[in-house]
Amino acid sequence: MRWLINFLSSSLGQKIIMSLTGLFLISFLTVHLLGNLSLLSDDGGYTFNTYAYFMTHNPLIKATSYGLYFFIVLHAIQGLVIALKNRMARGANRYAVKAKGNASFSSKNMALLGTLVLAFLFIHMGDFWLRMKLDWLPTVVYEGYAEPIADLYGRVAMQFQNPLIVIAYVIGQIVLGLHLWHGFQSAFQSLGLNHPKYTPFIKGLGKAYSILVPAGFAIIPIVHFLFK
């Protein structure tokens, strides 16, 4: 087991933890977005609420969700540890003049962006997930369901009438996009998946992903605010 501990505590091992957890979270974002897009359907929340019910009651998904929480925490803590170690590695004095032009904004500010994403996540989860877990939400009754279902859609629709919340969500998605802009391709680089033929494709995919997915999330509050 010593070898595994050595591996996980080495600089390269820690980077690999970051990239694997990051890639898992990236794949979660896709699933999450696909589900959330049902918030845009005009069925008074039926699709979304039943989807939310399924996600919170299917044992397999429930088990996966614990993994998700764990990976979020691991990604955050590991990221924090790396950021602190890296700060220490610079030494007592920092450069008087900041370098320009040798690296992208997002790559240099991953820890900051990550922290903001985490802060957004707390607000977001407090807003919806926590209320649902604590049974604070009103319920609706749908045909074919044995018990009343939490009306998460109602909560969403209400929250997104508040322009401040909408702005906060849009900013949150911009921050997420910036985090992904570097994070997506960086995860592949950390895993050593670099190839003269495929890396340009991965980089392109990463950029498309980091624009489209956050944009997809951001559209929901905007549409709700403007049209519903």
Binding site: S11, Q14, K15, I82, K85, N86, M88, A89, R90, A99, G101, N102, A103, S104, S107, K108, M110, H182, Q185, S186, Q189, S190
Partner: peptide, 12 residues
């Protein structure tokens, strides 16, 4: 030394 976060500043 610190840990690489793939900023690419080194190669530049």
């Amino acid at each position: 030394f610190g840990m690489c976060s793939n900023t690419g500043a080194c190669e530049v």
